[in-house]
């Protein structure tokens, strides 16, 4: 074996052998950047994703449903925390990541730029949005960066629970009064296509994917994940007696998969660029909470500093 292999090649060989990359290991700068972008985007999605659901906590229609929804949003805040910590291991501070979110430099999942006008949306988000997220996250439990992979194991467990709870909400509606059925169908109509968009651009138009696959950050292509999601979800909709809003949807015997219609990519790119129905609202909400909390954070910091001083003054000299 030649001795003149580059450090990049060594890294690739290390990753190819299914080893996990840890924070102190050498890694290509672009690998680090890709991960910071992806993990922080994931963290922001958890945090921004709290908003459309928090919107229904005070109006949840039973005490049990209220508790479940509260617990779910609490889990999401927790996921946000682990993911910020995982991203911090790569040398970017949480403050910086939050500043990038608020300035629009960092993205979050576009799905949260759609509104939640209906209680049924609490079911649909769990069923479809968490379902789509799980499709992606199960793959990420095997991602090459150790702290990210480990955070994903924990997150996946909770996400599967959320998905079941979401499905339960939709099932109750689908089996309920005519008004409840209508709610369920109307919500599915709105969320189906945005859920398919969650997997990102088609493989022909996904410039970063190839390198991410090579580094084993990503292990399946966008289109593969999307197809798996469709195959898994369509029978669930049939079971509920709900109709998927796609006239091109049909089982393809030869492929052993569902064929489905073309995604509206104009809408996809517009929502990513900030033109979705709630992009401005979501960021404004985050900025407002952050600004209104500034005096509280300052107070906590000032108090902690005073306490430190008081402790030092009472510690006897050695």
């Amino acid at each position: 074996m030649g001795t003149n292999i580059s450090i990049e090649e060594k890294f690739q060989a290390y990753v190819d052998a299914e080893n996990k990359v840890e924070p102190k290991d050498w890694m290509p700068e672009k690998y680090r950047k890709t991960l910071v972008r992806q993990i922080s985007q994931h963290a922001h999605s958890e945090v921004i994703g709290m908003q459309p659901e928090a919107n229904w906590i005070t109006r949840a229609p039973s005490l049990r449903a209220k508790l479940i929804l509260l617990a779910k949003v609490q889990d999401e805040a927790g996921h946000g925390l682990y993911l910020y910590s995982a991203a911090e291991t790569l040398g970017t501070s949480r403050d910086q990541m939050i500043a990038d979110l608020q300035s629009g430099k960092a993205k979050y999942s576009s799905i949260f730029n759609y509104p939640t006008p209906s209680w049924a949306d609490m079911g649909t988000i769990g069923w479809l949005v968490d379902g789509a997220a799980i499709q992606n996250q199960v793959m990420l439990t095997r991602t090459s960066y150790g702290p990210y992979a480990r955070a994903m194991v924990k997150i996946c467990k909770e996400e599967s629970f959320h998905q079941r709870q979401g499905y339960e909400i939709i099932m109750k509606l689908a089996q309920g009064t005519p008004e409840q059925k209508k709610m369920a169908q109307e919500s599915l109509n709105r969320w189906w296509w945005p859920s398919l968009m969650m997997f990102g651009p088609s493989d022909d138009n996904s410039p970063n994917s190839e390198q991410s696959m090579r580094w084993k950050i990503k292990r399946k292509s966008n289109d593969t994940l999307r197809q798996e999601f469709v195959n898994k979800t369509v029978p669930q909709a049939h079971y509920l007696g709900l109709t998927i809003p796609d006239s091109d949807l049909k089982w393809n015997e030869k492929r052993g998969s569902y064929d489905f219609g073309e995604i509206n990519w104009d809408e996809f790119y517009n929502v990513i660029q900030g033109n979705g129905p709630c992009n401005k609202e979501r960021i404004a909400h985050h900025v407002k909470a952050h600004e209104e909390g500034a005096w509280v954070r300052e107070a906590a910091l000032a108090y902690a500093e005073k306490e430190d001083k008081r402790r030092q003054n009472t510690t006897p000299a050695a």
């Binding site: 617990a71 609490q74 805040a77 909400h285």
Partner: peptide, 27 residues
């Protein structure tokens, strides 16, 4: 529970949601 997503820092969102859960659970 109305503090969910509007707390001064994420850790405190979690703390206050947790408290809301306790109260509603007791109710």
């Amino acid at each position: 529970s109305k503090w969910c997503s509007v707390g001064p820092v994420l850790e405190q969102d979690i703390a206050i949601i947790n408290t809301a859960l306790d109260h509603i659970g007791r109710a």
